[in-house]
Simulated assay, not measured.
Amino acid sequence: MYADITIKARCENPEDAESILLGLNAVFQGQDVQTDTYYETDNGKLKHRQGNIENVLIHYRRTYLGEAQKTEVFLYLKNPSAGTVAEICHGKGVLGQVKKIRKIFFIDNVKFHLDQIEGLGSFIEIEAIDLEGSVGLEVLQQQCDYYKDLLQISDEDLVTSAYTDLIHHS
């Protein structure tokens, strides 16, 4: 079963972070202009992401493990049709929208986002991904910790709130 551990932090110098990632031979997937729309749901978060690289409808729940977050995914549809989005989201109130410019990098099973969030500033995310359930949460946590150190992310910069929550509280 899919699992991931994610670390999110404010990022004062995204250019430095990008240089470190490229120095580690990270594969640059491209720059995505994304709009995330969050809908009311009884459990977790329901999000429709529209971008030029990533287009998904996802229903998930995050559990906080200290400085990191574990994600359980209930529904993940890649490139959903307008009809599918309407069917799943029909009648649900919109909680908010997040607009961002995201640079996407990969090193093996670890995905990195350098995000410029409208109204919030720059952030970095480290997402260690286990698609089949073969890696294990302990290894995913170790990967996040390893890259957190390499990217010189301080504990003070860590963020455990979703971007939409940060926007509503800023």
Rank of each mutant, 00 (worst) to 15 (best):
I5L: 03
I7K: 14
R10L: 01
C11A: 04
C11T: 01
P14I: 04
D16P: 05
D16A: 15
D16F: 15
E18C: 08
I20R: 05
L21F: 03
L21D: 05
L22V: 03
L22P: 00
G23W: 05
G23K: 01
L24D: 14
L24A: 02
N25V: 04
A26H: 05
A26S: 08
F28W: 10
Q29R: 14
Q31T: 13
Q31D: 04
D32H: 03
D32Y: 04
V33W: 07
V33C: 05
Q34S: 01
T37Y: 06
Y39A: 01
E40H: 04
E40Y: 06
T41W: 08
G44V: 02
G44M: 08
K45I: 10
K45W: 10
K47E: 14
H48L: 12
R49D: 05
Q50H: 13
Q50N: 04
N52V: 12
I53G: 01
E54P: 00
E54A: 06
E54Q: 12
N55Q: 07
N55I: 04
V56S: 11
L57Y: 08
I58Y: 00
R61V: 13
R61I: 13
R62F: 02
T63L: 03
T63K: 14
Y64F: 14
G66S: 09
G66D: 12
A68V: 11
A68S: 11
Q69E: 03
Q69M: 14
Q69N: 02
K70D: 05
V73H: 13
V73M: 11
V73F: 13
F74I: 08
F74G: 10
L75V: 11
L75K: 14
Y76Q: 12
Y76D: 13
L77W: 06
K78N: 08
K78F: 08
